[in-house]
Design a binder for these strands. Structure first.
Lengths: 214, 214
DNA sequence: GTCTATATACCGATAGAC
DNA sequence: GTCTATCGGTATATAGAC
C-alpha cells in the first residue's frame, strides 16, 4: 500500500533535507558565511541541485527562516512568561539563522523587524481588549520595549554566551523575569501583582489557550 | 603653510584616518562585508598600505572597536537612565561595528560579551555598596537581564529600525524606561526571599540616583 | 615608505553532458 | 532529473618594483 512513495515523495524529502541543512548552515555562521556548497555538503546532495531547486541563495534563506517568522494567532496574544521560558531554552535552527543574519543581511533585518512589530502589536491589542480603558499613547512604546528586551536576552544568552543568563531557568523566569515584564503593562490592564509565582500568568483566562511557541 | 609636521605625525594621521574609515566600513556591513579595499578607498590610501600598517583584517577590526569596549570606572557604576538615553541616540561607528559583527564574528562576540559582563558586574557592585544588605544570589541575574535588555533595545532601534522605539526620547526614558529598569534593582528593605505583606506593589526606587542624572 | 602586480582561494550562478 | 565543468567575480595576503 505504501508503494506510492515514488518520485514526488522522494523529491519532497530531498527538498526538506536541503532546507534543514540550510537552517543549520545559516544558524552556524549567518548569511555571509553560509555557502551553497556547504549546505549541499550537509544535505548530501550536489551544489547544483540546491540551485536548481531554490533558484538562489536568497530564496533558500527565505525558505529556511520561514518557520521562525510565521506567527499564528495564539502567538500574538501575550503569554510573556511562556515566550521567555522558550527563548531561554535551545533555539531552533531557523530562529538562530534569523538572529545571526539580521544585523548584516537587509532581508533578514526586515523579516525580524516585521516579526517584532507584529508581536508588539499583539501585546497592545491584548492590553486594550483586557482593560477597555482609554488608549494610551505609550502602549506601543511599552510593547516595543518588551519584545526588544526579550530579543536582547535571547541574543546575550545564545549568541554571545553571557553565562549569567544561563541561570534564567523556568523557576527564575516565574520569580524574577515575568513580574518585571508584567510591570510594563499599562496600569489599568492588569491588577497589582501580589507575591507568588501565580503572577506569571498575566493573561486573562479566556484567552489562555496555549499553543507552544517555537 | 605649516610644514612643521614631521614624518611621524603624518604617519600617525594616516593611521588614524585608516581606523576611522575601518569603523565606518565595519559599521556599515559588519565584519564579513567589510573589505580592506573598501576601507582603503574610504581612507584615500592604497589597500596594501592598510595591510602594511595593521598586519591583518582582524587586528584592524580590534583597533576599530576598541573605543566601544573600553570602560572607565564611571561607566560601570550605574546611571541606567543616562546609558539608555545615550543608546537611543546615534551610535558611534565603533559601537555599531561591534554590534553588527558580534553575531557572526567570534572575536566580536567575545568582546561584546566581556563588555556586557563588566557592565553587569559594575551594577551588582553598585547595588551592594548602596544597600548594605545581604548578598542576593539573583543579583547577577538581574544585572544580566538589564544589560541584555538595553542591548536588545539598541539593536531593535538602530540595526533593525523598529520605529516604535524611535519614540524613546529623553522624556520617555525618564517617564517609562528608567522606572522599569529601576524595578529590577534588588529591594533593600526585604531581607528574606519569601516576601511579606509589606511588598505590595512594584515601587519606584527610593535610593536611586538615576532620577537626577543630568 | 608606498604602490603595482600577482598568488591563492572561494564564491554564486550557468550551460550543457549524462 | 542530476551532475561536471566552468565563467566571472570577489577576497586576503604577499613579493618586489618604484
Amino acid at each position: 500500500m505504501n508503494e506510492q512513495r515514488s518520485r514526488a515523495d522522494q523529491r519532497a524529502e530531498t527538498s526538506a533535507r536541503i532546507v534543514a541543512a540550510a537552517q543549520e548552515e545559516f544558524a552556524a555562521g549567518g548569511w555571509a558565511k553560509a555557502t551553497i556548497r556547504g549546505i549541499a555538503r550537509r544535505a548530501g546532495v550536489d551544489p547544483a541541485l540546491v540551485m536548481q531547486r531554490y533558484g538562489s541563495k536568497e530564496k533558500l534563506f527565505a525558505a529556511a527562516i520561514l518557520p521562525a517568522v510565521a506567527l499564528d494567532d495564539a502567538d500574538t496574544t501575550g503569554h510573556l512568561a511562556e515566550v521567555l521560558e522558550t527563548r531561554m531554552r535551545a533555539l531552533s535552527p531557523a530562529t538562530e539563522a534569523l538572529l545571526r543574519s539580521a544585523p548584516t543581511a537587509p532581508e533578514a533585518a526586515d523579516a525580524l523587524r516585521e516579526y517584532l512589530s507584529e508581536r508588539a502589536d499583539g501585546l497592545v491589542r491584548a492590553w486594550r481588549d483586557d482593560a477597555e480603558g482609554p488608549e494610551n499613547a505609550d502602549d506601543e512604546l511599552r510593547a516595543a520595549m518588551i519584545v526588544s528586551s526579550i530579543l536582547g536576552m535571547t541574543i546575550a544568552r545564545h549568541l554571545l554566551g553571557l553565562d549569567a543568563l544561563a541561570r534564567l531557568d523556568r523557576d527564575a523566569v516565574d520569580r524574577i523575569a515575568a513580574p518585571w515584564f508584567a510591570a510594563l503593562t499599562p496600569p489599568d490592564a492588569v491588577t497589582t501583582p501580589a507575591s507568588g509565582p501565580g503572577q506569571a500568568d498575566a493573561e486573562p483566562p479566556r484567552r489562555s489557550r496555549s499553543r507552544s511557541a517555537r
